[in-house]
Design a protein around this nucleic acid. Structure first.
Lengths: 338, 338
DNA sequence: GCACAGTACGAAAACGATTTCGCTAATTAT
DNA sequence: ATAATTAGCGAAATCGTTTTCGTACTGTGC
């Protein structure tokens, strides 16, 4: 029912080839027929079949991003990235496609890539394993890892500067006069988590402060994991005057937990977040945070994948993008407490 | 480089037809060859080309949802819906694809549909106009409108019961003893907004309360539009003791604004939300809200679109799904104030 | 008038799968 | 033993584009 290139050709007494060439800007077609073809194409509402086009061209001009629904909080993180990615993709005449996959569908990503539904893929940290990476490398399929510094020279990645971010966050609290600064992050020994922890440690050491094991607690991607950590901190004899959380949603949770326990933020305890998510803005007091340049990350992953698609890539690109302190209302000088 | 059906055939001394039939469950292939084919298919890592498959079959088994990046808050709403939609789609062997489009690309939706990239599309309220609907209808392309009750007998939709939700929200506040209840919603005269307003009005009237124009203010999808509305309410001589917002993000903003102005929630003013978004949970006090059954909405839109794809649809399906009062901490009886 | 270049178009071969149809060989019925 | 059926496979058409290659025609230079 939808109209095909053949319909235009028949209608104008032309061949399929000429119509196709007119539409695709080939130069062996006269000005007059070209204009005629383009005019009737829009009149008849012609839209080339994606399937036929992809089959013949061997590419789709689409870049994929995978979302599994179990971790709803990541959308908060991704929405900032996506806006940057979409802008960039549009400039390159590419499309960003988000695949929503069920949680029990482990290797759908590989299927989609092998099936040629997309030309390249962005691997978000929640969403890959070593097998995926090995297979993509073996297939020579364009991909870039986002948000984690893979220890593999063959893969490209874009990652925020967790170390410096964590260092500066801690230093900022120290500059505010805090001396007992609690820290909470994911316990898994990934490069990201290790960088965060090292930034915290180094800032303490450089300021001549002592590291206290009791001031470190594990939290997870789930925001309510902040409850446990907060209770651990507040039950100490020597309570911290500031808490540094590894992402804003946990920070929000920590702050709410503190409030429920009767502490005032930032008067009694300062709370520091990470990532610069929208949720940190929507609360009172708003969360001071180390903001990631989310749109920039989106831009770079698209650009890097696109280079691989165009085959003009000499070496894998491994990039660290800077994070930035955003001072808001959940942190205060320690003097304010008295 | 990727392996094709022909490679398997050659490797087993079979024809393409037989291999294809073995893989697709045709019955004119012997048990032994079938098993042989399937085994070597996985061994060789075969994955059928999506383009070739779609071209031949004339369908993609994909359902599309469009996201424009300018309105970041909708992801909060959509993430609940998506999880329901994905589950349902998986049961039907369909895939849910999210198209992220740049804001300056108005009719990309129609292009994607006409190009046959997807078999059906979910029209989210922020994302269609009359022309889109007319064209889809003319093309006989499967689609369903989500979140708005279109006044058009030819189109299917799934919409939450805004009227009853708004009525019950208001009634709940009345039952708590409130007599001056402010209301804020989008000013555009859509069916949704009118239903919300009518629910509020009817609840007031049924309780014998008087409608006061000063207690109604416009807010928009942008959360910070709550600031203006809140200031309008608090500057009144006869201030409201409860504020009913049309979605949770605005409610959160109203609550924060009240806090900044020195009011306590719920002690001084009760705040009521709508939608049941995650953000309403992540704040202290948590927002009392009329929750939409988001996963159910996702389930139904997929099922309805799928029926259209399978062509077994007699009449357009227009569904209203119930909303539910979720009592949390931002509302309290008026007695508590004394 | 002849060779030659250039212009504008069409025929046909891909792309990789699915599916119809026909054919052989083996099995069953008569 | 012959006819009829069936099981198992292959040839080839098809989906709608893109792109290569060939060709007819026009115009130019000598």
């Amino acid at each position: 029912m939808t109209i095909k290139i053949h319909d235009i050709a028949k209608h104008l007494n032309l061949s399929n080839s000429t119509v196709s060439k007119a539409l695709n800007g080939y130069d062996d077609v006269s000005m007059t027929t070209r204009e005629l073809v383009m005019k009737t194409a829009v009149e008849m509402g012609y839209q080339p079949s994606a399937a036929a086009r992809n089959l013949r061209r061997g590419r789709t001009d689409k870049i994929g991003l995978f979302l599994n629904t179990s971790v709803e909080y990541v959308v908060d993180y991704l929405s900032g990235i996506i806006s940057g990615a979409v802008m960039t993709a549009q400039g390159l005449s590419k499309n960003l496609l988000i695949y929503t996959i069920a949680d029990n569908n482990p290797n759908q990503l590989l299927k989609v890539c092998r099936a040629g539904e997309i030309d390249g893929v962005i691997l978000f940290s929640t969403h890959y394993d070593q097998n995926t990476i090995d297979t993509l490398l073996a297939d020579n399929f364009p991909f870039v890892v986002m948000g984690r510094a893979i220890q593999d020279e063959r893969v490209s990645y874009v990652v925020p500067d967790y170390y410096t971010g964590s260092y500066q966050a801690t230093q900022y609290l120290i500059d505010l006069g805090h001396r007992r600064i609690a820290f909470t992050t994911r316990p898994e020994l990934t490069t990201a988590n290790e960088a965060r922890f090292k930034g915290y440690m180094d800032a303490l050491v450089d300021a001549g402060l002592e590291y206290d094991e009791a001031l470190v607690a594990p939290t997870f991607i789930e925001p309510d994991s902040g409850v446990q950590a907060t209770k651990q901190f507040t039950s100490l004899d020597k309570q911290p005057t500031a808490i540094c959380a590894f992402h804003d949603l946990v920070a929000v949770n920590v702050m709410n937990t503190l409030t429920k326990l009767g502490y005032r933020v930032p008067d009694d305890v300062s709370v520091m977040g990470f990532d610069g998510l929208r949720s940190g803005l929507m609360i009172h007091p708003q969360i001071t945070t180390m903001a990631q340049p989310l749109p920039l990350i989106g831009q770079r992953v698209i650009e890097i994948v696109n280079q691989q698609i165009d085959n003009d890539v000499a070496m894998p690109i491994q990039e660290t993008v800077p994070v930035e302190l955003v001072t808001r209302q959940s942190t205060a000088t320690i003097l304010q407490r008295c």
